[in-house]
Amino acid sequence: MPKTSVTVKQLVENTRLEIVSGKEYLEREITTSDISRPGLEMTGYFNYYAPERVQLLGITETSFSERMRHDELLMVYRRMACDTTPAFVVSTGLDISEELKQAAAEAHIPILTSSLTSSRILSNMTYYLGGQLAPRESVHGVLIDVHGLGVLLTGDAGIGKTEAALELIQQGKARLVADDRVDIYQQDEERLIGEPSEVLRNMMEIRGVGIIDVQQVYGAMSIRSHSTVSLNIHLSNARIGEKNFDRLGNDGDTLEISGVKIPKMVVPVTPGRNTASVIDAAALKNRTQNMGFDALTTLENRMTEEMEKNAALNGENA
């Protein structure tokens, strides 16, 4: 389910902008992550003006406006300040003209500022709004950050996803992002981000125990507000032998979420197998692999050497 809008207040809080005027209008809604740089509009060219976007004014716009007459400038800003315009943002701590203040006040639009440059603000706002406004997919599972790697645990209800996550959290090896329902969105072409639903944040349900607030019980170290979704570990209760589990770790199995494929490992859950340890090892294996170390290649090379040695011995015997 996509969030359809973000308020200007949320934008201010999450991209560290300062409010110049219009504090009472911060509930205005932003519906697109695109940002408008109204440079040509300053000259009166409004054919492609996108009023529903946040309007970002930088040195170009401001310096051009200094050459304009008072009435011209006020008219241009009034045309920019539409019903749907969420906010004006002025970069680099530039002075804010009386004309902009007047036009914004008339249309009940807040003016925000920052000492950062336009490109930096643009990038911060696009990153934040892109993530917030991206379509979300809810997945049944547990998302934990294991040694900095976002691991999505999936498997049938009651198989022990939460209990395995809890053990890793207790050992200080993992932090909880979301239990039971993970909301996942695409940050960019190859990166998925997962977060809890607002209601379930920091909460875990342990069968037979009930609901625990992980932050309260295990401390701030044990939780994260969001993380990447980089690896899927699927817990299976199929018996070894019934199902062909990946023995060498080279199946190349993947899970696709919102068009992004992440590596998937299917791990059997059987009595006597410590699922938490297996998840820990799986996450570390994935990390070392990303660093370019591959145990299987090493093993295969040793096997080839052994075969050559054996063949030489056989040759002597023959």
């Binding site: 023995r247 093993l299 050497e305 052994e306 075969m307 040695k309 054996n310 063949a311 056989n314």
Partner: peptide
């Protein structure tokens, strides 16, 4: 293989032998 017995259900054991072509 060459006087060594391994459990065929254990992949590590099988791989340890280095059974090449012609064995």
């Amino acid at each position: 293989y060459q006087g060594k017995d391994v459990n065929l259900k254990s992949i590590m054991g099988v791989m340890s032998l280095g059974v090449g072509q012609g064995s």
